[in-house]
């Protein structure tokens, strides 16, 4: 009995076959793949428009094989709002880093979530500004060294890192908000489940969805890709616990 050779893991259609600019070991690449797989599996690629932030992942529009808009720093949720309101039949997602979403764009993300805008946000939290070379971000941990807190973040002067999943979950408007991670295979499985659920809820026009994804930044954390996964596991997971912070109940669908 000839046993056919089946490919059980391959590049999704929604992810272009190009080498990315991301640093070796940067888990942006894993998140890009997961989102693209979900777009393929739900058959959404051809009616999707993504919104790129300003940051390392601004160039994600060169990797995602769907229509894209490039937003001013922090304003992706506003672009997504404007687009989705005009084209509620299309799938819209913003892909943002922690500087983009939790710092300059805090106003936009809070209000978009609170209005219950029917788009999905993939919020990549790597506790640092990547593109500009490793500065302190709103999610930088206490004592974490960056180029703008060279002796470690002094939270008595700069405040505590911001837990976005929890913060946005305090909003009353129905939403599905979960924090996941991608630095270990078992978390990658959970991350994909959550991202698929978020896009499914959007496809079914239910509510605002945001997935916060803890991610590594070996170059600016100053360690190897392998060490970065361990640093994330030991430090970020404690301060940013994974889990579903707001789940969507069917009866909430009043909005």
């Amino acid at each position: 009995m000839a046993v056919d050779n089946k490919t059980v893991f391959d590049r999704p259609v929604a992810l272009r076959d190009v080498v990315t600019h991301y640093c070796p070991g940067c888990t942006h690449g894993v998140i890009h793949r997961i989102v693209s797989e979900v777009l393929d599996e739900l058959g959404l690629r051809e009616r999707t428009c993504g919104v790129a932030p300003v940051g390392c992942s601004v160039l994600c529009y060169n990797y995602y094989n769907c229509d894209f808009m490039e937003a001013p720093h922090g304003r992706a949720p506003a672009l997504a709002t404007g687009f989705k309101r005009m084209r509620p039949d299309m799938i819209v997602f913003t892909y943002q880093g922690d500087g983009d979403l939790a710092s300059i764009g805090m106003g936009e993300i809070v209000h978009a979530a609170n209005r219950g805008e029917k788009f999905t946000t993939i919020f990549v939290n790597n506790a640092i500004y990547g593109m500009t070379g490793g500065q302190m971000a709103p999610t930088t941990l206490q004592g974490q060294v960056t180029t703008t807190c060279p002796v470690g973040r002094d939270t008595s002067m700069t405040g505590q890192p911001i837990r976005m999943a929890e913060l946005l979950s305090a909003l009353a408007t129905p939403a599905y908000i979960e924090r996941v991670a991608v630095h270990h295979p078992k978390y990658i499985l959970q991350a994909k489940k959550a991202i698929r659920k978020a896009f499914r809820l959007q496809r079914d026009n239910k509510c605002y969805t945001l997935i916060e994804v803890l991610s590594t930044c070996p170059t600016n954390w100053g360690n190897t890709p392998g060490e970065a996964t361990e640093w994330l596991d030991d430090n970020m997971m404690k301060y940013f616990p994974l889990g579903c912070y707001k789940d969507f109940q069917e009866d909430d669908s009043g909005s």
């Binding site: 937003a71 304003r75 506003a78 672009l79 404007g82 989705k84 309101r85």
Partner: peptide, 14 residues
Amino acid sequence: ELAVANMLFGAAST
């Protein structure tokens, strides 16, 4: 108004 102008960008893209 800042958010509104960016909503305009998104809406115009349609």
